[in-house]
């Protein structure tokens, strides 16, 4: 894995500067069933294709942001700052 990722603040940087934090999940709103909770905590879609995921520019500005990436080619389709509460 050596692709280039664009931090919304700092611009294109080698992926080594970033920390990957997995695909975007939906946190249950209130008192989920055990199955819903387990789905949220442990299960991932693991798509072969476009995926929305969390990244942090850990060796850089420290910003957390969202990226849409094609998991087959590592093509970054877009990056954006999160819109809180969504």
């Amino acid at each position: 894995m050596s692709f280039v990722l664009a931090c919304p603040h700092c611009g294109p940087r080698p992926v080594d500067e970033f920390a990957y934090s997995g695909e975007v999940t939906r946190r249950p709103q209130s008192s989920p069933t055990l199955r819903e909770l387990t789905d949220y905590v442990y299960f991932r879609d693991n798509v072969a294709g476009r995926q929305r995921e969390w990244w942090q520019h850990r060796q850089g500005c420290g910003e957390w942001f969202l990226a849409e990436r094609d998991t087959r080619t590592n093509e970054i389709i877009s990056v954006s700052l999160p819109k809180p509460g969504t």
Partner: peptide, 13 residues
């Protein structure tokens, strides 16, 4: 630190 910052990015406090 990363954990706090991440949740705050999610919640936006």
């Amino acid at each position: 630190t990363a954990w706090f910052e991440w949740w705050n990015a999610v919640w936006g406090y």
